[in-house]
């Protein structure tokens, strides 16, 4: 059943293309930040599918690191939108 996993891999890549469409269309800054945040979670799904396909465990580590980095980036952009300094 490896074909099904290959198909779902390409399907998730098409979903990241949808998020990029919102990045291009988005009228405000906040819309673009939301689309990038959601794209990070979808990339975690792609990493997990690669781990299922190859059976190697370090790909899950990449996924966890990606979750945390995307979270830090989102927090930084939220602070910027609130117009506050980073050490408050």
């Amino acid at each position: 059943m490896m074909e099904w996993i290959d198909f779902s891999f390409w399907f998730l890549i098409a979903l990241t293309a949808l998020c990029l469409l919102r990045v291009i269309l988005g009228p405000t800054v906040a819309d673009r930040v939301v689309a990038i945040d959601i794209m990070g979670i979808i990339v975690v799904g792609i990493c997990v599918l690669l781990a299922i396909r190859t059976g190697r465990s370090f790909l899950i580590d990449i996924g966890i690191a990606w979750i945390i980095l995307s979270f830090i980036g989102t927090l930084t952009m939220a602070k910027y939108l609130e117009r506050r300094k980073l050490n408050e």
Binding site: V34, T74, L75, M77, A78, K79, Y80, L81, E82, R83
Partner: peptide
């Protein structure tokens, strides 16, 4: 992250 982004965009 969703909560922080929502509050930031509202402010």
């Amino acid at each position: 992250g969703a909560h922080a982004l929502l509050k930031g965009s509202h402010i």
